[in-house]
């Protein structure tokens, strides 16, 4: 695989969430030969964590984490003592640890993580080659980009990215300028647009799932994903949502504040 080597010298900040994702407790009991790979194409705060956790909970869909996210590699480098571990070597390790007994390995991938891994500013043939190794591509996205941006802005401000974070319950009212949300919008919308354009340009076959639908009809949407992955069994129970929705009144207040800031009143739509 033609990955560029990820920077090795920079100190990469690692969060508790990253550590949980890389926890040995999440590993499957032994390495299994891979029979099926899938990738969740995502953007920040698109609901990919919810989807990924659900898939993990089925115990038959690997553990789709953001393996291209530099902190995860950093954790593995620290743990192994191999400070020069390449991304390719890291991926091989994760495939061994996170392939479920039925031979399924999955991962999540934000668009900018892919660019970063390949040290590129836009998609190239090497990325397509990488993506072609996956048997299935699932594209999760969010219709309401403003709410997605607000969620991202709050996450950046609090560094609390999931309800699994112990600090989540302490989430206090915080002051975020709407412009920070506009900046976050650049990130989330840019990421989603990157996938959108690549999927169109390269004619990638993807199963699309919308965050709003996932939240509304969790069971139905999960089944659709499992069906797409050919993992659905008739008597299978869809695991309960493993994480809670973080958004609360503060998100709503910020949403209205942002819309007012943009001059996007309720009458406008």
């Amino acid at each position: 695989m033609a990955f560029a080597s990820m920077e090795r010298k920079k100190t990469i900040p690692v969060s508790d969430k990253n550590r949980r994702e890389m926890s040995l407790e999440r590993d499957f009991s032994q390495p299994y030969p891979i029979t099926k790979r899938y990738c969740i194409l995502s953007s920040p705060r698109s609901g990919s964590t919810l989807l990924g956790r659900m898939l993990y909970e089925t115990r038959g869909a690997g553990d789709p984490q953001e393996y291209f996210n530099p902190p995860l590699l950093q954790i593995e480098r620290e743990r192994s003592g191999d400070s020069n571990m390449s991304l390719i070597a890291f991926m091989k390790r994760m495939e061994m640890r996170r392939t479920s007994p039925n031979g399924v390995f999955g991962m999540k991938l934000h668009f900018y993580q892919m660019l970063h891994a390949f040290q590129a500013s836009k998609p190239n043939k090497n990325m397509l080659a990488m993506l072609s190794r996956f048997n299935h591509l699932i594209w999760i996205r969010r219709r309401d980009k403003l709410r997605q941006a607000i969620s991202q802005a709050i996450g950046q401000h609090t560094q609390i990215w999931s309800s699994e974070d112990a600090r989540n319950t302490e989430r206090k009212a915080i002051k975020i300028h709407p412009f920070a949300c506009v900046r976050a919008l650049q990130v989330v919308a840019g990421d989603d647009r990157g996938w959108e354009q690549l999927i169109e340009t390269a004619n990638l076959k993807v199963h699309t799932i919308w965050y709003e639908d996932l939240v509304k009809d969790y069971g139905v949407e999960c089944r659709k994903v499992l069906k797409h992955l050919a993992l659905e069994q008739s008597d299978m129970e869809i695991p309960a949502p493993p994480i809670q929705r973080q958004a609360n009144e503060m998100n709503e207040a910020l949403y209205h504040e942002l819309k007012a800031y943009l001059g996007w009143s309720e009458e406008i739509g």
Binding site: K145, L146, L185, Q186, A189, Q197, E200
Partner: peptide
């Protein structure tokens, strides 16, 4: 075009 698409969540064709 990209700015508008971003702000409004609209589709923008690949360049």
């Amino acid at each position: 075009s990209e700015l508008v698409a971003r702000m409004l969540g609209e589709y923008v064709a690949p360049q």
